[in-house]
Design a protein around this nucleic acid. Structure first.
Length: 768
DNA sequence: CGCAAGTACCTTTTT
DNA sequence: GGTACTTGCG
């Protein structure tokens, strides 16, 4: 008993009261509302430690489901350092990985091959396009993406074709495509992301013995980021906890940012309704951010009308004011960010007293495309960066091709993969042949691979007889097809006794892919290096050389995002989308593109609910910052090649003045009056948010932020109108000290663009 | 059939 | 600005 108490107190001594309660309430349904920076992960790890060390629960009976694999891995690491050997056996994974594993074991009971292929986003689109083509649905009339999203929406609510309700013409089209899409998936033993959940749900529902097995396996279940779960995930957690009812869900409605992926925030309410004995604990002390940052975040989020009020507080100091920065366009914006980073490198953290490192810094943005300007400038300033997301490694053509071959080796019926690589490199199987093949496969209800096999041993005339309307590939094409199938079969036979690296090497060789890649004089070498890197990534699968390894490997590729593989080793800044930043924290955060149309995004401006989700996204971004926060915007932003004026985000005006350090007065107005009268076409935001004076500036911190330089000896300031002897009229958009001199950045009218000038040398004078 | 050049549409966010 | 798909020629 003494031992237990001592263990207990050791585990919870450094937790606050709410956290302690959350750790110790192990039985029955528990809802933890965890504000940003409230020590949520600590609660989860300590709770698990408590279950194991104090309650004596065997590790293998505990499961935590997280939102990303990265979160799962971090959790595992932390548990390992806390519990050592005792952490082995704990399940920590995403819903999708967990379901994939369950289906590999038991999928056959609901008619799923255990070699099933997971179709990623682009495979889905390919398959949907194919379905549409077969059904004569014009992709110009109805976007494949729209259909995909409708299907996904249905599936994530556990609605299959049979239960799909049509309320419009569009729905009817969707349903027809949905039917064919499902047939094609079944034919190719493929499952999409939603199927992983849906099929696990039906497995549990239809085969109770399997459900019982997992109910007794995971007697304690925790779900993280519960606000971002969808109906299917909710129902699966219900199924899993239906026997022991020890289900703990952790989330924060204010950080719900995935409704577009069918996450349903109502799950939190449903959870309480379904489990009337739910205990609710709120974690409201923030350990992460300064008072200023937390205040700003709270002011923004409190503009949301549909919201359960909660008030976070912190014992942390006031810290620095939030800096609002403005650039002329996205390049200027990026330039200012990087310049600021260079000065920040000399500064010290409030918390640790240490110099900041690049790892302390993140630049966040709404859309991936925004990273481009940043990357350019990082290169220019030689600042190493880590780009999270964006063009993912596995999305590269050459990598996808090899994955395609691997998928066919594992599952030859995988039509999506087959179509991709059947003629790569060119082997005489052109568009016409493939079309014929697809038609045959439709007619015979066989996978493309099986059809080729048929052509192969029957003479082609027999198939002709079976389906005389179909044009049989000519002899030359048949030979090419046959050769291809034989090649795959040979590789398949060998695959069983090879490790992955060897298998890939053989594929590269036999398929002629190596020659094909290296034959490209422009990008050949680069692509070959990517392939080498890909081969290296199979290293951890070396020891086990069976076909199961291949299946595991492909699964991890399909489910594991790039973000999961990145290491924090090198000293680099982080470029990341706001969505991906969820759950992370950095001492210094820049959020760029604080503009109407970007944050909130133009596509989210029609509906109030979407504007509120965008606001939550801003909230998530801001609450990532521990010490310093910079909110950036540009006056003009590149858009599909061109460039358009933009106005400040409405969310900026929701931050009280006294928390903000602003760029010098009314630069926007001047900018607007000289160049972009269109800025005033939208009257609501401009005046309110940017022209407010900085009179409430209460912080004493000396900022070196480019736009905030206000030295008395400086005769030019941001926003000043100038005349240059050669370039004519322009506007000062930046002014920084530079070796006893000042460097002005001036935007001149149309022909001359942005110029950097040294004050002492430039033939320049102020106007008015 | 293969390749080069041209066009339409585009991405908001990701397991 | 870039890609994915189409067209047209050799």
């Amino acid at each position: 008993m003494y031992h237990v108490n001592r263990m207990t107190s050791k585990l919870i001594e450094d937790l606050n009261l709410q956290q302690q309660e959350a750790v110790q309430l192990t039985k029955g349904p528990l809802l933890i509302i965890a504000g940003p920076g409230s020590g949520k992960t600590r609660v989860i790890t300590h709770r698990i430690a408590y279950l194991i060390r104090v309650c004596g629960v065997p590790p293998r009976n505990i499961a935590v489901v997280t939102f990303t694999n990265k979160a799962a891995n971090e959790l595992k690491e932390r548990l390992h350092s806390m519990l050592g050997q005792d952490s082995i056996g704990i399940t920590a994974s995403t819903f999708h990985s967990l379901c994939a594993r369950i289906l590999r074991h038991h999928g056959s009971k609901i008619g799923l091959e255990n070699t099933f292929t997971i179709y990623d986003d682009s495979d889905q689109i390919t398959t949907i396009k194919r379905s549409m083509k077969e059904l004569g649905v014009d992709p110009k009339h109805i976007a494949p993406r729209a259909i995909q999203s409708a299907i996904s929406n249905a599936k994530s609510q556990l609605i299959e074709t049979s239960g799909f309700k049509c309320e419009s013409y569009f729905d009817e089209v969707v349903l027809r495509v949905f039917h064919r899409y499902e047939e094609l998936l079944t034919l190719g033993s493929g499952v999409d992301f939603d199927d992983l959940l849906l099929k696990t749900y039906s497995l549990f529902k239809n085969i109770p013995s399997v459900a019982h097995e997992y109910q007794d396996r995971f007697t304690y279940l925790m779900i993280d980021e519960f606000q971002d779960t969808n109906i299917a995930q909710y129902e699966i957690s219900k199924q899993l906890s239906d026997k022991h009812h020890n289900l703990c869900v952790v989330g924060d409605p204010d950080q719900s940012i995935y409704s577009w992926r069918n996450a349903d925030i109502r799950n939190i309410l449903t959870f309480q309704r379904d489990n009337p004995d739910t205990k609710v604990i709120s974690l409201e002390e923030n350990y992460r951010s300064t008072q200023t940052i937390l205040d700003a975040a709270q002011h923004i989020i409190s503009s949301n009308k549909k919201r359960i009020k909660k008030s976070l507080w912190t014992n942390n100091g006031i810290g620095y004011p939030i800096t609002i920065g403005e650039g002329y366009n996205e390049n200027e914006e990026a330039d200012i960010v990087l310049k600021t980073i260079q000065t920040l490198k000399q500064k010290r953290s409030i918390l640790t007293g240490q110099r900041y490192t690049l790892n302390d810094i993140a630049i966040m943005y709404r859309v991936n495309a925004q990273s481009r300007a940043l990357e350019d400038v990082c290169l220019k300033y030689s600042i190493p960066y880590q780009l999270i997301g964006g063009i993912k490694f596995y999305q590269r053509q050459e990598i996808r091709d090899i994955i395609g071959f691997l998928r066919i080796v594992l599952n030859p019926d995988d039509d999506a993969a087959l179509s991709r690589v059947i003629n790569v490199p060119a082997r005489g199987i052109g568009k016409k042949t493939v079309t014929g093949l697809v038609q045959l496969s439709m007619e015979l209800n066989l996978s493309m691979f099986s059809v080729i096999e048929l052509i192969d041993h029957d003479s082609s005339s027999e198939i002709d007889a079976m389906s005389h309307t179909i044009k049989i590939p000519n002899l030359r094409s048949s030979r090419s097809l046959k050769t291809f199938v034989e090649m795959i079969k040979t590789i398949q036979v060998e695959a069983d006794s090879l490790n992955l690296a060897k298998l890939i090497t053989i594929i590269l060789d036999r398929t002629g892919y190596k020659t094909y890649i290296l034959g490209d004089p422009d990008r050949g070498l680069e692509r070959w290096e990517n392939i080498q890197e890909f081969i290296n990534s199979t290293e951890s699968y070396l020891d086990n050389s069976s076909i199961n390894t291949l299946s595991e490997f492909l699964e991890s590729i399909a489910l594991v995002n790039d973000i999961d593989n990145l290491q924090n080793q090198k000293d680099t800044i982080t470029l990341i989308t706001l969505h991906q930043a969820k759950g992370l924290e950095f001492p210094i955060v820049f959020i760029i593109g604080m503009e109407e149309g970007l944050l909130p995004h133009a596509r989210s401006m029609d509906k109030e609910s979407e504007l509120e989700e965008e606001r939550r996204l801003a909230y998530v971004g801001i609450t990532r910052a521990k010490e310093r926060l910079y909110l950036m915007r540009a006056f003009r932003r590149g858009f599909r090649g061109g460039s358009e004026p933009s106005i400040p985000s409405r969310y900026l005006s929701e931050i009280p003045d006294n928390l903000i350090d602003k760029p010098s007065q009314s630069s926007v107005t001047r900018f607007a009056s000289t160049e972009d009268t269109e800025l005033f076409n939208n009257p609501s935001e401009t005046a309110g948010s940017l022209n407010r004076s900085s009179k409430h500036r209460s912080h004493t911190d000396k900022h070196t932020f480019a736009h905030s330089v206000e030295s008395p000896e400086l005769s030019f300031r941001t926003g000043d109108k100038v005349i240059h002897n050669a370039f004519g009229e322009g506007l000062v958009i930046n002014c920084v000290p530079s070796g006893g001199d000042f460097e002005l950045t001036v935007a001149f009218k149309v022909d001359h663009g942005i110029k950097r000038l040294l004050l002492s040398l430039a033939p320049i004078r102020k106007v008015k």
